[in-house]
Design a protein around this nucleic acid. Structure first.
Lengths: 245, 245
DNA sequence: CTGTAATCTTTATGA
DNA sequence: TCATAAAGATTACAG
């Protein structure tokens, strides 16, 4: 399953059960138990994990421990993670807290505070998650770019469309209409290259002139973004983010 | 519990059950059902939700639907959310997928892709979560700044690599080395165009001559397949399958 | 997503 | 130099 490469992590003293699972099933994980103040598990300089079992999750919302803890976690590590364990059917009943309040808190944590929430069914699953994260961070690290692999059984036209789909602001629809019109990806790129943006007298972009002029759903914004992307001729920036273009 | 202020959301046509729950229990939610291509529920310009029931979650990992969908969600909305529903004890069994793969996927989505994951026990809980999010977005803190950490969009280089990955016989590795050398997708295509296949005296393909000559991992097979694909100049066939090339 | 099988590239070797 | 084999990478596919 896993490489024989060792993974090194820190675990808080109290996480005994977790340690015994690692001992038993994950010999390639070399953990160091110590008193951790802000997290339960530390995977790297960047990534730290807080683990909360279902009932304790609710309890810690009630006595306000949770948000404090998570706030500190977030302040200390760039990538804070909350593993929420054992979300079974009755864990929220008789907690003295309204379900809607619990989910309100959970929503806030997840999408407002920007803490990555990972649900697991039980502590064994939690161990798996920790192992996977450690593996990702420590071994596979920065490697894999997002790989989108196409089924090999595509027809040529399908695959041509697929290539064109890589462009900015384009989905299957526009991609297909471009391939239908220009047949090959190369010609599509040439068409984009030879399309110019027109401006108003005050210097604001107005429209486009050239090959793509008459195509539905293609306008100056598309041309601008993709010329930069494909030919890099509008700007000089190196690692600029697409949003800023 | 709820305000008398109305909440307005869009729901995809197929989410019938959700609608009936809203009808029944949340009269203050005014939903509009329509065909949504990218999300299941749209809460605001910024916030869109994909809902996945446990088993379908796994199924969509297997057939690669999930990552495509989430990628698009993330590209379209600044705050993409995945509601993971019904994570009960047996939902991962007999799916034909290893548990570690499932949690690997979940981890990637949550902490690498930066998509907010919110687990719920069932569809009723899901309705609660949606209500809470809509309430937060539309009433509680309306248009406030999201304290959420910057959604990590692709850098230009990543996206360029991504375009090039559409080629045949190419994965992240070769794609990246091509972009590193040629900077832009267009130049990569030009380099392919200007690379010729050389033959031995006996007529067997031997290697390549031209721009790509010195690149590791690129040889005549790659050039042959992609010239056909990109420029359509080797053959005349129309709907040929790539396998036969 | 993960692990394995299939495919492709490169290096080595001998004719 | 060419052809073939083995070794090493990378990509495709199944679960």
């Amino acid at each position: 399953m896993s490489q024989n490469n060792l993974l090194k992590i820190f675990i808080d003293n109290r996480e005994r059960k977790l340690m015994s699972i690692f001992n038993e099933k994950y010999p390639h994980i070399q953990y160091e138990a110590k008193q951790l103040d802000i997290a339960d598990i530390i995977v790297s300089e960047e990534v730290a994990i807080e683990r909360k079992e279902g009932f304790d999750f609710v309890a810690s919302i009630i006595d306000n421990r949770l948000f404090e803890q998570l706030m500190r976690l977030k302040d200390t590590y760039p990538t804070p993670i909350l593993i929420l364990e054992g979300l079974n059917d009755n864990v929220f009943e008789n907690t003295g807290m309204k379900i809607s309040s619990i989910y309100g808190a959970l929503s806030k944590i997840s999408y407002k505070m920007g803490i990555a929430v990972i649900p697991t069914r039980n502590i064994e699953d939690t161990a798996i998650v920790i192992e996977r994260i450690a593996y990702r961070e420590q071994i596979r690290d920065g490697a894999t770019i997002l790989s989108r692999k196409a089924p090999k059984t595509m027809t040529v036209d399908e695959r041509r469309t697929y290539i064109v789909e890589g462009l900015v602001d384009i989905g299957p629809k526009k991609a297909q209409s471009l391939i239908e019109k220009y047949k090959t990806p190369y010609k599509v790129l040439k068409a984009i290259k030879h399309t110019e943006i027109t401006f108003t007298r005050t210097g604001n972009p107005k429209g486009i002139r050239g090959p793509l002029e008459k195509l539905k759903g293609i306008s100056w914004k598309f041309v601008e973004k993709n010329k930069e992307l494909l030919f890099g001729n509008i700007e000089k920036t190196k690692q600029k983010r697409l949003d800023d273009i």
